[in-house]
Structure formats: C-alpha cells, structure tokens
C-alpha cells in the first residue's frame, strides 16, 4: 500500500467535513425526543408530524411551482443569451449583455432582493402592476438570476459544439431558425437539462430574494423553514432535511447511473465497430 499523498488525505477529510453534518441531521431526524441533541430512541414520529403540517405542505407546493416555472423560463432566456453571445459574432450591446449575464452569479442576494423589490414598488406606482407581490414577482426574480446560471452552463457547451454542424445544416437547405431547432437544440440538450435542474434547485433554495419580493400571498418553503429555525432546533426540520437530502442524492445517483450507462454503451459500440 502506497502512502496516500497530502492532497488525497485532504480530499477525504474535506468530503467528511461536507457530509458529516448532513449525516448528523439525518440521524437525529429519527430521534424520538424533542431535544435534537439528546438521543432518546428510534422513532418516525417527526415524519408523521411533518406530513400533518399544512403550512409546510403548502409552502412546498408553492416552492415547487415557482421553481418549475422559473427554471423553464430561465432555460429559454439563458439559452437565448448564450446563443447570442457565442454565435452572433460582434454586435452592439454585447459587452453589456455579457456583464449582465455574469454579474448575478456573484451579486450578494440582499442587493438583488432589495433592488428588485424597489423596482416592483416603482412599477406598481407607474403602471399599476404588480399590485400585489407574490408568486409572479418571485418568478420574475428567480428567472432573472437563474437565467445567468443557465447561460453559463449552456454557453460553455455551445462553445464545444462544432460550428460547422450548423453551417452544414444551412448548406443542406435549412434556414437559421430551423437549424437552431433541428440541430443546435438537440445537440446541446444535455446542457439544457443540466441548466434546468440547476435553476430548479437554485429557485427552490432561495430565501433572501424571495423574502424581499414576496408579498403576503406567497410563502415559500425556505421562508417557512427559516422562521422555524430562527427559534431554535426543531426535529421536524431534521425530517424535512432528510427528505431533501434523500431526493437530491437519489436524483444525482440516477443521473450518474444513466450517464455511465450511455458512456459504456458508446464504448461497446466503438469496440464492435473496430472489430467488425
């Protein structure tokens, strides 16, 4: 056995650092005691209570809907922005567009949230919309910052796609719009899926921006969790955390599994081809 290098040890320790706190969360979600830190025997009662909590269930439904629509819109906008930046050569406003696409990635959330709220207040004064803040305003806010992430994911994929694929389609008689839908989109489809999933999780996870732009009508899951957690540790939140971690892990595992399988299939096909 070779002595493991310093960096390998750091990698293992780092992964432990990332995963141990989450494992502790999962472990205590099965604690029968209300005190999260004292083990009092195995129990599933917090899961039952979680599913009886109408406020949390409503918030989950609201959050899922917002995340779905935000991710979908962000994929449209972000893909458009990426396509324009990568494929359109030079045009007026390109620097402005690329700055506005990368800036939301690092903008502190309090600034984004505050500025969007003030925009909505102004719009309500000027044009009477949005009269009430709620799901629509959260949707706009989430779409805006999520499309920046989608644009980064899609443009890095688009850059790898051979430009002559699109040129070949046009050469064979497909006009630009048709080329985009028949060639470009199918080729970058995996990046679109990755971008959508990323936007979906970002939207589900956002607390600060949603708190600013939301109104009394819409309470998202992070808002409910935050108001509960602020008061201290609660085993019901542990149960919720466990379910979230489980879902994300399962989705990641499935994605990994299918990626690996299609890769293996491809390798077998290549080998067959070389032999035959």
């Amino acid at each position: 056995m070779r002595k493991p290098s310093f960096t390998t040890v750091m990698l293992i320790l780092g992964l432990l650092f990332l995963y141990l706190p989450m494992l502790v969360l999962v472990f205590y979600s099965f604690n029968s005691s209300r005190l999260v830190t004292v083990w009092a025997g195995f129990s599933g009662r917090w899961y039952i209570e979680l599913f009886r909590d109408q406020q949390i269930l409503n918030a989950v439904w609201t959050s899922l809907r917002i995340a779905f629509f935000s991710a979908s819109m962000a994929v449209c906008l972000g893909t458009l922005a990426a396509f324009v930046m990568v494929r359109f050569g030079r045009f007026r406003g390109k620097t402005a567009l690329s700055s506005m696409v990368t800036a939301p990635l690092v903008m502190p959330e309090v600034i984004t949230g505050l500025s969007l709220l003030l925009l909505f207040v102004h719009m309500a004064q000027l044009i009477g919309w949005p009269a009430d803040r709620g799901m629509a305003t959260i949707w706009i806010a989430h779409t805006t910052f999520c499309s920046a992430y989608v644009a980064v994911v899609v443009s890095s994929r688009l850059r790898e796609v051979d430009l002559s694929l699109e040129e070949a389609a046009m050469d064979l008689g497909a006009p630009p719009v048709k080329t985009f839908f028949q060639i470009t989109l199918p080729v970058i489809a995996p990046a679109l899926a990755a971008g959508w999933l990323l936007a979906f999780t970002l939207s589900l996870d956002d607390l600060v921006i949603a708190s600013f732009v939301s109104g009394p009508g819409a309470t998202t899951l992070p808002m409910v969790v935050f108001s509960s957690v602020r008061l201290g540790v609660s085993p019901k939140i542990n149960a919720l955390a466990t379910l979230i971690i489980l879902t994300v892990s399962l989705a990641t595992f499935l994605a990994w599994y299918f990626m690996r399988r299609s890769e293996a299939k491809r390798r077998i096909a290549m080998r067959m081809q070389q032999e035959g």
Binding site: L165, E167, A168, A169, D171, L172, G173, A174, P175, V187
Partner: peptide, 28 residues
C-alpha cells in the same frame, strides 16, 4: 444565403449530425 444555393459542401470535420443516424444525415 447558403440554404438557397444549389451548392453543397463536405466539411473538413465532416459535421455529421451526432443525434441522427447515417440515413437521417443523408436524408436531411
């Protein structure tokens, strides 16, 4: 524009559409 010319090109990288079969490529 290229899509209205009776000229076709074979690209250096071949530019075969990766999501289509050989027959679909030729039929495109």
């Amino acid at each position: 524009p290229p899509y209205e010319r009776a000229i076709n090109m074979m690209f250096q990288s071949y530019a075969l559409f990766p999501h289509m079969t050989v027959a679909e490529n030729i039929a495109f």
